[in-house]
Design a protein around this nucleic acid. Structure first.
Lengths: 195, 195
DNA sequence: GATTATGACATAGCAGCGCTATGTTATGGC
DNA sequence: GCCATAACATAGCGCTGCTATGTCATAATC
């Protein structure tokens, strides 16, 4: 029942239907109380929906294969992140909604650690400078990607402009971290072509 | 009356009070109808609040002095942008709220053009490569800044981590656009120290 | 095996929300 | 002087999330 409600909320979100208490339980056979017994209320439901969003994102990132090129893999994570967001824009907005509870942070941290690890690997394999702080670079990388994706999801930037902007920013951040410009650009473009 | 309601909404937003129709008009002497005669409803009020937010941002950016160093000025715009957001985080969130109407875009475009002009100047004065597309670089610059500021405003990133992350990203983007790394870093750090 | 405690469910109704229909009043043009 | 118009107030609608209360099935206890 719990999972059914969360999945229905995600479906309604994707269908751009307003997710209200009564509309949510309608069709499930349950009454409005189900939301309170399982989630304690609507904020609890939204928290569960965000967790679901991060779970789906984690699955996407886990599906990104590890190749011999760590920079390519790093960018491939970004591409998967962007595709995940654009495939379910309303869910992405819910994940980063202003009313989001910071208690949901662990779910986000797990996916972020995947990014930190990818940066650390690129550094350890010599593509990035040895002085690179994986956590700091991953944060810059993520924040830049989040900014671009947010603006696209919101309709401020056109979706077809995302790829060139994201590649430009990725190349800038990674070459600043010590990667060879030509090699970096090749890795980045290969990752976007594959995604 | 119009301006009074908008300013009161901004004040309530800053005070973290929920901005509801009845709470808004209470204390102004007006009734709930005032919101409908002046704004056509709550969405219209929010639109006006966002316009007010962009107006204040434009005033902040206009107050940034023009110096002999175009890269310094470019970063100074970013610093002013960040300070504006952190001084009124709820207003910033409202400006980029998911429910924001794209019809409010012109107000945002005006402030964005200020950034494009600053990039174009840096290019024209030889700090950035002649092939630099001011609009594209400004978009990357803005998206990265928006991503960082959004995460800080939301509490995901600590506020004291903003400066180093932002300087790192700015240096990466600007050196990738052709600026001399050492000179760029000096300009960036000077702008952050001044702001 | 009967009893009781517990959790999940349904029903009804609360206060609050944005909004609208209707009535009132003040201002400006003819 | 008359009236059109805009701005205001009042009352009430449908909806929201939520809670108080009642029902019922399951499981543990003696």
């Amino acid at each position: 029942m719990r999972t059914r409600l969360v999945e229905r909320a995600a479906r309604m979100l994707a269908d751009r239907e307003p997710v209200t208490l009564r509309a949510l339980v309608e069709g499930t056979g349950a009454s409005t109380m189900a939301v309170y017994t399982h989630f304690g209320g609507m904020p609890g439901l939204w928290s569960a929906v965000r967790q679901e969003g991060f779970t789906r994102l984690a699955a996407r990132l886990a599906a990104v294969p590890r190749t011999a090129d760590p920079v390519h893999d790093l960018v491939a994570l970004g591409v998967a992140y962007a595709r995940n967001a654009l495939d379910a824009p309303e869910l992405y907005r819910a994940m980063f909604d202003a009313r989001a509870d910071l208690a949901d942070a662990p779910a986000a941290d797990a996916t972020f650690d995947r990014l930190v690890d990818a940066v650390a690997r690129a550094r350890d394999e010599g593509r990035l400078a040895a002085t690179t702080d994986p956590r700091a670079l991953a944060t810059q990388y993520w924040a830049a990607g989040h900014g671009l994706v947010s603006l696209v999801v919101q309709g401020v930037l056109p979706a077809d402009g995302l790829a060139p902007l994201a590649t430009g920013t990725a190349v800038a951040l990674l070459t600043a971290a010590g990667d060879d410009p030509g090699r970096c650009r090749a890795s980045v473009q290969r990752a976007w072509a594959a995604g």
